[in-house]
């Protein structure tokens, strides 16, 4: 009984420790040519502007598998509110012919996209990718 209580306490402390160091990172497939992207480039990418690396267009995917990612995406990546972002996307798609970033609503689909598209770029919780050899972290976007 005492052992069970100690294990539970340890588990809670570990969870709090993980939660206290959570971070959102920009990721690409492990075999991607992308090394790093500046914040301005990342912003362009997720606003739908075409971004080429070594002559190859990157494919941005908006990760919506976790609702907590949305405010971080809006504040740290595109630096605007949701409505402003929607207006900007509409303007870009309709007037400039840009492509709307594909939205993925489950973590499995995000990972599957990263595995299948070497030009894919997206953002994820660090804890979800730090032990995944098929995914490479290229930038920390936000950390608590």
């Amino acid at each position: 009984m005492r052992r069970a209580l100690l294990l539970t306490l340890l588990l809670v402390l570990c969870t709090q420790g993980v939660a206290g160091t959570q971070a959102v990172v920009l990721v690409v497939p492990a075999d991607s040519n992308v090394v790093d992207l500046e914040p301005v480039t990342v912003r362009k990418l997720f606003l739908g502007l075409p971004v080429l690396v070594n002559g190859v267009p990157l494919h941005p995917f908006r990760n919506r598998s976790d609702a907590q990612l949305d405010p971080i995406f809006l504040q740290q990546i595109v630096a605007m509110s949701q409505s402003a972002y929607d207006r900007q996307i509409l303007i870009g798609v309709n007037r400039q012919g840009w492509l709307r970033p594909v939205e993925l609503t489950t973590r499995a689909r995000v990972l599957a996209t990263l595995y299948s598209d070497p030009n894919a770029v997206t953002f994820m919780w660090l804890r979800d990718v730090e032990r995944n050899p098929k995914v490479r972290v290229i930038r920390v976007l936000w950390s608590d």
Binding site: E38, P39, R43, L74, Q75, A79, M80, S81, S83, A84
Partner: peptide, 17 residues
């Protein structure tokens, strides 16, 4: 809130850049 948050997010991003 929209009027408040939207510009300061952009401004803070610009300062960071």
């Amino acid at each position: 809130a929209e009027l408040f948050v939207n510009p300061l997010r952009s401004n803070s991003r610009l300062i960071a850049d």
